[in-house]
Design a protein around this nucleic acid. Structure first.
Length: 433
RNA sequence: GGAGGGGUUCCCGAGUGGCCAAAGGGAUCAGACUGUAAAUCUGACGCGUGAGCUUCGGUGGUUCGAAUCCACCCCCCUCCA
């Protein structure tokens, strides 16, 4: 791809929300290989799929011949970004943040290429330059360039300032300045001239553009991507089981695959643009083909396949599909013993029980403890609707107290496995020790 | 430091002595319908199979009885100094 075609490409993928310095930026990108960055703050020990969009855009830029820098916010994570947050955030300890930084650095590194010559990627931590800055230098050399009048006008903090019942601490208010300083610093260190981020980062990015000009007289640019939304208005990236994380220890490849497979029709094509490297023309063709056909569209399957491979690799995808095939084909009985064991290794939720555990206790207890159900009430509700099965046999309300009859020895797969199912989509494998 | 407003179950938000496990909405879960969709309808939605148990910032108190009243404390917001 030509250096400059990247903007056109991103536009076709609907990945551009706002551009700072549009024409100049296109010109800038067309005339050489540039350095750009995106920041990722450690707010947990893993990124979630919301961060995938900017991460992949970094890679898109790299594929177009530009040099990406992934910045991990070891310093900014200590402060907390107030942008569009309704409430002040709880501060985490430096120890915790530092541990998170390590994990996120590794995670981020998987999406960009560190060994491709001149435009090899970099990962940096803003603690490198923020740690030794003293308060007075900060206030005199950096803070002096910011107008509080302008800062309180930022849309990102407006609700915190104007809304009755909320507020903002000086700490979080200062976040904008820290992130702005990052940009100017990267501009100095690596001649970084573009910052990208989610649309919520617009205020922080323009702050950095202004500061870089004031500090170094350099013209730099910004680009934001749209916030990922869902057709039904629910928050993207969350499911009943919680957030969809990139870390396979937190969200198994199977769960990850299922998440994408369950995308709404109206979202699937947009997500294909956002989260895959498929050509836009191919996505358009797929959409047209799906429209022609009756029944289930192919888009979700393609989406799940592509994104799972991207994040969890071919092996992760393989595992996810294997489980999906086994569970949704209804042919659990046809699985071999090693298949069943493989399911467990592949990330199907599982736990080990002893026969003696069935002597007393209740089914609701067992299913709740296993994590299959959130509460006994849920199990109770499902039992009343024939929505709980073990190895394919539906259980009723009467079975709740008779645990041993739910797990009959003769019904065990290979003498020791029970696959419990709650509703249509939730499974848990029990192995008898 | 002063004056005022506020902290309710995942979120928003009603509730000012018993009828309150706490309205309503959202989110979520399950069932029907389907395509492992959407929309719609139904049910659940603090915990417990159950009797029952534990909740309304915290601690004490008043009362037969408190989310509701009182005292003190903690936290948040607004204005003043």
């Amino acid at each position: 791809m030509e250096n400059g075609a990247i903007i056109e490409n991103l536009r076709a993928r609907e990945l551009i929300f706002q551009l700072a310095g549009e024409e100049a930026l296109v010109e800038h990108l067309s005339t050489g290989s540039r350095t750009l960055y995106c920041g990722f703050d450690p707010t947990a020990d893993s990124l979630h799929i919301g961060s995938l969009v900017p991460l992949l855009v970094l890679r898109r830029f790299q594929l177009a011949g530009h040099k990406p820098i992934a910045l991990v916010g070891g310093a900014t994570g200590l402060v907390g970004d107030p942008s569009f947050k309704a409430q002040e955030r709880q501060l985490n300890t430096p120890d915790i943040i530092s541990a998170w930084v390590d994990k996120i650095r590794d995670q981020v590194a998987a999406y960009i290429d560190f060994d491709c010559g001149a435009n090899s990627a970099l990962v940096v931590n803003n603690l490198e330059w923020m740690a030794d800055m003293d308060v007075l230098s900060f206030l005199r050399d950096v803070g002096k360039h910011f107008s509080v009048n302008a800062m309180i006008q930022k849309e990102s903090v407006k609700q915190r300032i104007e809304r009755e019942g909320s507020g903002i601490s000086f700490t979080e208010f200062t976040y904008l300045i820290l992130q702005s300083y990052d940009f100017s610093k990267l501009n100095r260190l690596y001649n970084c001239t573009l910052q990208i981020g989610g649309s919520d980062q617009w205020g922080n990015i323009t702050g950095g553009i202004d500061l870089t000009r004031r500090l170094h007289g350099a013209q730099v640019y910004g680009l934001t991507m749209p916030l990922v939304t869902k057709a039904d208005g629910a928050k993207f990236g969350k499911t009943e089981t919680g957030t969809i994380w990139l870390d396979p220890a937190r969200t198994s490849p199977y769960a990850f695959y299922q998440f994408w497979l369950n995308s709404a029709d109206t979202d699937a094509y947009r997500f294909l643009r956002y989260f895959t490297f498929l050509e836009v023309a191919d996505i358009v063709a797929l959409e047209a083909a799906d429209r022609e056909r009756q029944g289930r569209p192919e888009a979700q399957g393609v989406l799940a396949t592509e994104v799972t491979r991207l994040v969890h690799g071919a092996a992760g995808l393989e595992a996810a599909r294997r489980i999906t095939a086994a569970l949704f084909s209804g042919s659990i009985a046809s699985l071999s013993e090693s298949d069943v064991q493989q399911l467990r290794l592949d990330g199907l939720p599982a736990s080990t029980l002893a026969r003696s555990d069935f002597e007393d206790g209740t089914l609701t207890q067992v299913l709740t403890d296993s994590g299959l159900a959130a509460s006994g009430k849920q199990v109770k509700d499902a039992l009343g609707r024939q929505a709980v099965t073990i190895n394919g046999r539906p259980l009723g309300w009467d079975d709740n107290m008779r645990l041993a009859q739910c797990f009959l020895p003769e019904e065990a797969l290979f003498g020791r496995f029970y696959l419990a199912k709650l509703g249509k989509k939730k499974y848990h494998l029990f192995e008898i020790a």
